[in-house]
Structures are given as structure tokens and as C-alpha cells.
Design a protein around this nucleic acid. Structure first.
Length: 120
RNA sequence: UUAGGUUAUUGGCCGACUACCGUCUCGAUUACGAGAGGGAGGAAAGUCCGGGCAACAUACGGAAGGACAGUUGUUAACGACAACCAAAGGUAACUUUAGGGAAAGUGCCACAGAGACUAUACCGCCUGUUUUUGCAGGUAAGGGUGAAAAGAGCGAGGUAAGAGCUCGCAUUCUUUAUCGGUGACGAUAAUAGAAGGGUAAACCCUGUCCGUUGCAAGGAGAUGUGCAUUUAGAGUAUCCGGCUUAGUGCAUCGAUUAACCGCUUGAUCGUUGGAGCAAUUCAACGACUAGAUAGAUGGUCGGCAGUCACUACUGACUACAGAACCCGGCUUACAGAUAGCCUAGCAAC
RNA sequence: GGCCCCGUCGUCUAGCGGUUCAGGAUAUCUGGUUCUCAUCCAGAAGAUCGCGGGUUCGAAUCCCGCCGGGGUCA
């Protein structure tokens, strides 16, 4: 789980990302992101529709797994981006953690939000 | 031992690393850091009932509308629960039941059938007439139709043929009386009676209960000015009466979905004892047990346990399901594991 | 979180508890008309009335419980 300051708050706070952000697709999910220079910290949200799974338990599990991956790489983020992950497939709740992490990081590297140069 | 019935409990455990949300303490001072301790359910679900709590300037009367319906109890309350009664099902343990009224009134009972509601004579039986066909009448015992056809079995009498038409015995229902029970009701007896059904989850009648809106409730708007002003307007779902008193447009300020309170000590939970067949209740002692807000309660790894597959190694899987103001029920989902009591069959003693 | 509505052929819809295991339009299929296609004409097939119980002699219809879909309230 990620901290209180790294979540979205308020009524229309997501609309900027939805209107201005760029979209990249992975298997079973899509990442929408936009750089936000007015903030010091990044923000992240995971959207899991009720169409993905009827069960609230499954939806919670998907959300928590994706948040965990984001928290793992938060030190390597460049700037202070706003990230929205939209999930389409139910099998994200069941596939192996390493496999999910690998496919997610591949998308993140493509978006140039992850700066390996800074770490190195 | 096999097949059931019923009432309950439980529904993974241990460790390591690393996150999140409250609370308390300490240090800093509005950023934050350290430590301690807490963090989903039996259904948190469906939202089908009931209540608390809050607002509505009144929860005032009537109409309309809605819900319920054996009896006695339990409860804050209920459409829930318990015990009992009746009916139906089951060999039995036991289970199920919207279980008031059809003699207040109205409606409906298709098709088939002669006739379906103050009904009816198709076949049959009998009498008369007659050309033996047929026609007129009697009959409700027998046949046939249908979900349903006028309480009714056996024997005797009776008759043109028949029929509770009459009698005897047996049965069902109504009425009355006595006894038992708080009561629904049950048992016994008597003489009086025998009246044709079904449907009220059709309209309806009787009795009891219900004000409306919901935590997105509510704490929570202020001032100035124009218009309107008791025959009118506004206010709490429909109408009437009554009641209260202002209303509405514009401008300015505040607020603009943020934050705080409401928010978790409660018809609370556990143990022991008393009352009661039970639901439940009383007393004493002890406990504090989530409070988020795009929504915390997690993620990964290792070991154990269980289930399935397999000769084995080993592999796969781990029930249903996620608090949103709080309680009491109901309904629905649920891999398995455990315990008590009871019934029937078989076997042995 | 609260409140409300709707499920009938592939699609859009009618449907008094019984006259008929449900009518119509459109789509589909077959045949006819035409040199051919369309239009037009004739015919056919296609529905466990969302699911499970109950009331009734009888249920798409009445009652109850589930399932699915949709709407609304700051």
C-alpha cells in the first residue's frame, strides 16, 4: 500500500490526467500518466471496474498488488508524475507476482518515467 | 454397523523481511522522527422487515393507502423467536403451513359434460300412449363428463320403478351441557338439526399496527434591497379540516463537495449463579474489542496441516466472502472439521 | 450508503388466471413473380415467458425468495 500523500484526493483531481495524459498498454492493464510540476511527490491510483470481477475481495486484491509494485519502484521515479492504472483482466489477481512485476516495469520503462540513469 | 433427523461449535497455524490506517507516550513544532499497543465477518452480502439516533416550526383529527392474521408468551420493537393447538407429509425421530371470515354482500368456476348454481334427464330403469321408431311423465340408486355433480356406508322396509322416503347400527358436521386447560382446543354425553361446493396470495368484511424523510440525516447560513401581503402565499409523500408563520427575485459576504463534530461505551461482550419447558430475563464480577473517506486492515518468501492426482519422488489447490452511523431478526452463499441428543433397519451378546 | 424501476422468439414489442404450451412487426429460411437483384405475394421455422418455491382444478399473469440489467439522490 502507498501512503496518504501519494494518493489522489478530492472530487475532480483525476480529470487532468484523463484529459492530458498519455496512455500505454500492457497485458491486462493500461497506464495513463502526466507530469505534474506543481507537486513534489508522485500520485498514483488504480482503477478496477466492477466489470472486471463481481467480487469485492478480488478487486481489492488486484488493487493492492499493483500498489505494492508502484511502492517498490517509487525511488526511481523521475519528477512527480500522476499515474492512473486501469485494469481490464481478472487474471491479475492470480498470476505470479514476479511475472506481473516484470510486465508492469516494461511499460514503465517505455514511458520514460523510470530513470535508471539517476540510480546509476 | 448402515440409513436418516435435529441442535450447536469451528472455518487454517507458525516464522522472517517490508508497507498502510487510527490510538497513546516522548522528542521536535505546524513538515516530521522514535517507541508501545490495536486493526473485517458468520454471514461484514441482499436491503426483505423492525428499532435506536437526527431533522421536519405540528407527528393533531378524519379519509385514502399499506402491512399483518391459530393461542399463550418473549422483546426496545417486529412481518422475528419460543412453547403449545389444528391440518398435511413421513415406518419413526421429525418436518411444513399468509392457519381470521364463504351463514354480510358482489364477482369468477374455461374446455368437456344432459346439467356448473336457487342447475340438470344423455345412456339406463319404470309408467302411460303408440306402428316395436317415437312422444308425454316419473326417477337420482347404476353408467358417462369434469378439479368439483347436492353429507352418507351396511342391512331391512317401501315402490310401477326408485330415492334418508322411513327404520336399526356405524360415521361426519352444527348446536347445547358437563369436565380438563390461562387459551387455541380436547374428552364425554344429550337431544335438536342436516343446511350443496370451491376461490378472500378475487373485490371485500372484521381486528391490530403504521406521520414523513434518512448520517449524502443533521451541527450550518448572514445582511441589504425590489416585489408580494391574510379571499392569498409558504410549510412534512395524496386529499379535507385544523395548526404554524412569513414568502420570493436580485446583490454583497460566507461556504462551494475540503476539514471538524456526528463516529463508536453499546437494548455491548465474557464467566458464574438464580427464575422459566423454552424464547428470554435478573444479579454479581471482569473486559474495552476497527473507525477508513478514490476508501487502511496488506505484499513476498519459508515451514507445518488438510484435500486431490501419482507406485514413489513430487505437483496443484486452501470454502463463501471485504466494515462505511449503530443494533435485533429474516433470506441467500459456504471446501471441510468437530461435538451432543434422537429414530428406523441389520448383526452379535 | 439510501431509494426506485425493468426482465416474453435473433431484435422491438402485445398479452382479462382458462378458448391456442403465447399474438404482431422486423430479421432468417423456402417457393413464386423478374433476364437478374430489390420491391411485392404465399408459406415455414423460431419462446422451458430470467430462475426456484407457493396459492389455485388450472399461473407468462397472483404472492414470496433469489439472479441479472438499468436509473436516481451531494
Amino acid at each position: 500500500m502507498i501512503g496518504q500523500k501519494n494518493r489522489f484526493h478530492g472530487h475532480n483531481s483525476l480529470s487532468y490526467v484523463y484529459s492530458k495524459g498519455r496512455t500505454l498498454r500492457g497485458s491486462g492493464f493500461a497506464v495513463k500518466y502526466a507530469n505534474n510540476p506543481r507537486r513534489k511527490t508522485y500520485r498514483c491510483a488504480v482503477v478496477v471496474s466492477k466489470k472486471v470481477s463481481k467480487s469485492a475481495v478480488t478487486r481489492n486484491r488486484i488493487r493492492r498488488r499493483v500498489y505494492e509494485i508502484v511502492r517498490d519502484v517509487e525511488d526511481q521515479l523521475v519528477g512527480s508524475p500522476d499515474i492512473v492504472v486501469t485494469v481490464y483482466a481478472e487474471n491479475i489477481a492470480t498470476i505470479g507476482f514476479e511475472e506481473l512485476k516484470k510486465s508492469f516495469l516494461q511499460v514503465m520503462l517505455q514511458s520514460e518515467m523510470l530513470g535508471k540513469r539517476e540510480g546509476a
